[in-house]
């Protein structure tokens, strides 16, 4: 990752767009990442979401397939 990567704009989706995106796809076709804390995940989470709390992202980045679109919340 280079310095310029920090200046890349990341497209965002509204919740409605995310719902449509996820509904039309097989769970194999995307990464769905919940970056909140475990207690929050336990309370409720999007079905199939992979819990990777923000503080652990750097160490667990390999769990996210860079060839697939990623939805993060």
């Amino acid at each position: 990752m280079g310095v310029l990567d920090y200046f890349k704009s990341i497209p965002t989706m509204s919740a409605d767009e995310a719902r449509k995106f996820l509904a039309g796809k097989n769970p194999d076709e995307y990464n769905l990442v919940d970056v909140r804390q475990p207690m929050e995940y336990e309370g409720d989470h999007l079905p199939g979401a992979n819990l990777i709390p923000m503080a652990e992202l750097k160490d667990r980045i390999k769990e996210i397939d860079p060839d697939k679109p990623t939805v993060v919340y």
Binding site: M13, S14, A15, A18, R19, R36, E40, L46, V71, Y73
Partner: peptide, 9 residues
């Protein structure tokens, strides 16, 4: 996802 899970319906 904008609004996070609170925006999720």
């Amino acid at each position: 996802m904008e609004g996070g899970i609170r925006a999720w319906k």
